[in-house]
Amino acid sequence: MHVWVAGVFFGCNALTLPGVLQNVPKTMFAQSLRFAGISIFMIGMLIWLIGGARAGFTNTSIEHVKVDEITGLEFTEYEDGLEPGIEFIAAGFFGFGVLVAAGAYFENKQKL
């Protein structure tokens, strides 16, 4: 089991690590790749949602808009911090696509 988990985590397969993963069934490996793909997409989506579900790209500073009581003027203060943007969804989706495609590849390879 631990070898199978290592394979999923490091994106390896029996060809890249000869002998180590030889005993892992390929359908199981393909399924685990799909599972990892879905997980990556969900993680990306979750980070984006928790971070405020912003429509723009990721911010590396957080803006705080304030109003000066005496003049009534609006001003912005910046604080170091991360506001996740749509790149997190895109990266999650990309990871999902790559891992699902890899899973399909291994599954087809086994059928042949």
């Binding site: 790209f57 990721t58 911010n59 590396t60 500073s61 957080i62 803006e63 910046y78 506001e83």
Partner: peptide, 9 residues
């Protein structure tokens, strides 16, 4: 140099 945007890059 005082121009500030919330994205460092």
């Amino acid at each position: 140099s005082s121009i500030m945007v919330p994205k460092s890059k």
